[in-house]
Amino acid sequence: MSVPYAHTPRPDTGMTNARLGMGLFLAADAMFCGALFSSYAFLRTAAGYWPVGREVLPMRLNGLALAATATACAMALYAWTGARGTRLSTRVRAGSSAGWGALSLLLTAGALHQALENAGPPAANTFLAIYYMLSAVVTVHVVTASTLSAVTALKSARLGDNLLLSRLGSVGLLWAFTLFMAATCFISFYLL
């Protein structure tokens, strides 16, 4: 027996099952990341000394990674809102979102390498431990979102209109959350 509203929105809720499912997943994800940021705040307020991020960590590389993530997110949302256009343009936008995501990963890898060389390993102090932990969590999000963008771009020719729109919507939501995470991370370590 097929499951209703898998590809077409339910009239009274205006959502497909996947869109609601992704929204709920992101709510759980927000709680997960919220717990990590709360831990950051808890540890920082309890610490006697807390280093200044700008002086210890590779701000420029992290800033460039954030910019690449923002571009990837913008392309993913553009692919979603413009999905009524041609399949080719949708494929290009979703594909470029994955590409910008890959660039963000490269820049993050460089930043982590530089942090390891200049500041030390996670075990050196709690400041570095939480920096590496949050960076790792953001990285996992970028990897997931980039992979989903790439898969959607590759499969877009074979997907029906509704299914494609539903998938692009879910990927767009994931990218938006990833950007929010990356930006919060950047602000926490460099601007606060």
Binding site: D29, F32, A35, S38, P121, P122, A123
Partner: peptide, 19 residues
Amino acid sequence: PPLAAAGLLQLSDRLVGTS
């Protein structure tokens, strides 16, 4: 999710040497 996050932090304490 907060327990999963806490579990991740505790795993890091045990495996990576964080505190």
